[in-house]
Simulated scan of single mutants.
Amino acid sequence: MATTTRTTTPRERYRAQIRAEIKQHAWEQIATAGASALSLNAIAKQMGMSGPALYRYYLNRDELITELIRDAYRSLADAFRAASAASGSGTGLGALAHALRHWALADPQRYFLIYGTPVPGYHAPDDTTAIADEIMTALLDACPAAPADASVSPFEAHLAEHRTWAADHPAAPATLRRALAFWTRLHGVLSLELAGHFTGMGFDAGRLFAAELQDLLAAAGSPPGRG
């Protein structure tokens, strides 16, 4: 069966190059002043373009923010996919935890764009939400299932009726609870570390993350993953 190779014109390649440059300037702005201060006019000035010229590449600020958020979620989803593929049997949760921390430390501004304070007035489109669902699905797939005869806590009973966040995953309520514990506790450590709240406290934040992960894996009945 013949394969079709997608070709691009010089105009398309130039447009992609300019869009990538705009995004790079946007990340620099976010690192300096946060996503809420993102300005297309300021980016145009940095690039030696007029405002109307830049708007040929991004219609407005929300479209640019959407592109950045989409890129951020996609990069984490890809990191989770690679970690899942590389991990051995029973090590999935640990592998995902280490992938999450490596991804967050590599680019804190990217992390905070999707897991920090929401951008005022911005609502993520459905396709971006779908990528975020891939991340949660990978987490739920890696969580060991609870014993069939395990008792159900009040919160797990609540999760049985409030599972929209789980993206239609068939996991039992106890597994949903394990996934949430994993997600919230590790994000709590990462958010504080990346925001600099551990600075001067005299301990290694990486060791704190590892200790939290060890406790979570023990509670889930899963062996440690590879770092």
Rank of each mutant, 00 (worst) to 15 (best):
Leu217Glu: 02
Met201Gly: 02
His197Cys: 12
Arg101Val: 10
Leu76Arg: 15
Trp165Tyr: 12
Phe209Trp: 01
Arg177Val: 02
Asp141Leu: 03
Thr137Arg: 13
Thr164His: 11
Glu134Gln: 14
Met1Ser: 12
Trp165His: 04
His102Met: 09
Glu67Trp: 08
Thr91His: 13
Leu180Gly: 09
Ala83Pro: 05
His197Phe: 12
Leu192Gly: 05
Leu194Gln: 00
Ser39Cys: 08
Cys143Lys: 00
Phe155Asn: 06
Ala37Leu: 06
Lys45Phe: 10
Tyr57Thr: 08
Asn60Ala: 10
Glu21Gln: 15
Glu212Ile: 04
Thr91Arg: 13
Ala220Ser: 04
Leu59Gln: 13
Tyr57Glu: 13
Lys23Cys: 14
Trp103Met: 08
Ala95Thr: 05
Met201Arg: 13
Leu105Asp: 15
Gln29Ala: 10
Thr9Leu: 06
Gly51Lys: 06
Ile22Asn: 10
Ile22Val: 15
Thr129Pro: 00
Arg74Glu: 14
Ala85Ile: 09
Trp183Ser: 14
Ala124Gly: 01
Pro118His: 11
Ser191Thr: 15
Glu134Phe: 09
Ile114Phe: 07
His187Ile: 06
Gly116Ala: 09
Ala104Gly: 05
Phe80Gln: 04
Thr32Ser: 13
Pro52Thr: 03
Arg81Ser: 15
Glu63Ile: 13
His102Thr: 14
Gln24Arg: 14
Ala132Phe: 08
Leu113Trp: 00
Pro170His: 04
His169Pro: 07
Gly121Lys: 06
Val189Leu: 01
Tyr122Pro: 03
Gly88Met: 09
Leu68His: 02
Ala166Thr: 03
Arg61Lys: 15
Gly51Arg: 04
Trp183His: 15
Ala2Asn: 12
Leu59Tyr: 10
Leu213Lys: 03
Lys23Phe: 03
Arg110Pro: 11
Ala148Trp: 05
Ser39Lys: 05
Phe155Tyr: 14
Ala26Leu: 04
Arg178Thr: 02
Glu212Tyr: 03
Ala166Pro: 03
Asp62Thr: 13
Ala195Lys: 09
Gly227Phe: 13
Phe80Lys: 10
Gln109Ala: 10
Ala82Glu: 14
Tyr57Met: 12
Ser153Tyr: 01
